[in-house]
Design a binder for these strands. Structure first.
Length: 419
RNA sequence: GGAUAGGUGGCUGAGUGGUCUAAAGCAACAGUCUUGAAAACUGUCGUCCGCGCAAGUGGACCGUGAGUUCGAAUCUCACCCUAUCCGCCA
């Protein structure tokens, strides 16, 4: 959520920002509505002042004065009620619109419609050249009994999977390694709840949008699609100690995605599943653009370093305006090379929000002058499983169908080859 | 699922219809003292919105929303949330 004062003072920038994100919203209309809101509020406040002034005198007034005052106040009260009702109507549309005003994308964000217009800003590693017929991860992992899709769909349905044997072992190895890797970078590990109150989907700006994208419980709670949601909720309605900032959390949680409307996409394999696990970096920092930018680079770089330590070829893209969420100012995606698909697939997203989320969630801190300010928030995938397995097994496959394990993982896996 | 208690400022907590302009304590900040720190003492200290260059001034806020009333933290209703006990249970 943006500050209405900021919106009023920067109408054109906000409108242009929405344009860049391909979000339809009429800022002039919002400002006109806000004019109405202010006008109504001023008038109501005047009447209340009058009411308060007289009310104060009533207890000490003489009997007949008192009766006159009470009669006068009845008239004021009626007028006031009417105006309050009309303000309530205005506020309903006002709040609805405010929730839909997108955050302003950074200058460096390229124009564009969809992920096709994202800009590659970095390429790392050497794509493997196989002197044999390479297999895809479905075939590789099925043959090595690392995954069982047939029984997965028997039990879960479409997109269901069992990770079995070395598939499960490899996942545990990656988690262990990720724990060590990110703990060394001063992240506090957290296992958050993933059944969350719906308000936190609004707070993180996943809503308003399509509620159909989320699994909901019969109690009206949501299954979080990312640890970002509970981790941001963790400090909602709090005033943080400035000395504790930046707060760096490493969340580990199952993630639930309904993937409504994606039925024809990635129908095979581990790329797109309803339920997976993810380590997520989340940072709350002081309200400074420079700090946000620095932390944004830092957390994205953390993920790149993690991938580099595994030796998987990747590239990093800068997301275009049309591919940004409502609250995001700027986003990098790290995408891993998938040999059999001859393309890169996303495994990480690093975004910063300024105070867009913290304003909705009311996460503040006291700055050096003692003034309350909304903190800035950022998040970045550390590592998702099982999606990472797709690239891992395909890049490190050998002619005989066995898989080399990256050196960094060997001590967690207890062996060097999956066969 | 059943029963009970409760939600007040950064925190603890008093306040049951009209000087509530919300007590008090803690914490925080500033000062005195001290070589420095601690302690002690003194002082300052809620948030948001409007108007104003400013000093200031008006309004709102005691979980949320409705209601009663000239007037609500206080009374009524609904909802949300938290805690405890019983039952069930990994």
């Amino acid at each position: 959520m943006l500050d209405i004062k900021f919106i009023r003072e920067n109408k054109d920038i906000v409108q242009a920002g929405a344009q860049k994100k391909h979000v339809k919203i009429d800022i002039a209309e919002l400002v006109a509505l806000d004019d109405k809101r202010k006008e109504a509020l001023t008038s109501i406040e005047k009447k209340r002042a009058e009411q308060n002034a007289i009310s104060e005198k009533i207890p000490t007034a003489s009997a007949e004065d008192r009766q006159k005052m009470i009669n006068d106040m009845k008239v004021v009260k009626e007028a006031l009620q009417k105006e309050e009702d009309s303000l309530k109507e205005i506020m309903k549309s006002w709040q609805d619109m405010m929730l839909r005003v997108p955050n302003i994308p950074d200058m460096s964000v390229p124009e564009g419609d969809s992920d096709k217009d994202n800009k590659e800003i970095k390429e790392w590693g050497e794509k493997p050249k196989f002197d044999f017929e390479a297999k895809d991860h479905v075939e590789l992992m099925t043959k090595l009994a690392m995954v069982d899709f047939e029984r997965g769909s028997k039990v879960h349905g479409f997109r269901g999977y069992f990770l079995t044997g070395d598939g499960a072992r490899l996942s545990f190895a990656i988690w262990q390694y990720a724990m060590d890797f990110f703990s060394a970078k001063k992240f506090i590990p957290v296992i958050p709840p993933t059944i969350v109150r719906k308000q936190f989907l609004y707070g993180t700006a996943h809503l308003p949008g399509d509620v159909e994208d989320f699994y909901m419980t019969q109690d009206g709670d949501a299954l979080a699609g990312t640890a970002e949601v509970p981790l941001m909720g963790m400090h909602s309605e709090e005033v943080l100690d400035a000395k504790e900032l930046p707060k760096r959390y490493l969340g580990f949680s199952p993630c639930y995605r309904r993937e409504a409307g994606a039925h024809s996409k990635d129908v095979k394999g581990l790329i797109r599943v309803h339920e997976f696990y993810k380590f997520e970096q989340l940072v709350l920092c002081e309200a400074s653009h420079e700090t946000s930018v620095a932390v944004h680079e830092e957390i994205n770089r953390n993920t790149e370093e993690f991938i580099e330590s595994l030796g998987i070829p990747y590239h990093t893209v800068l997301n275009c305006g049309g591919d940004l969420g409502l609250g995001q100012v700027k986003k990098y995606d790290v995408e891993l090379w998938v040999p059999k698909e001859n393309t890169y697939r996303e495994i990480s997203s690093a975004s910063y929000f300024h105070d867009f989320q913290t304003r909705r969630l009311n996460i503040r801190y006291k700055d050096a002058e003692g003034k309350l300010r909304y903190a800035h928030s950022l998040n970045c995938t550390a590592i998702p499983t099982p999606r990472i397995l797709v690239s891992l097994v395909e890049n490190f496959q050998q002619a005989d169908g066995t898989i080399r394990i990256p050196e960094a993982l060997q001590k967690y896996m207890g062996k060097a080859i999956i066969s």
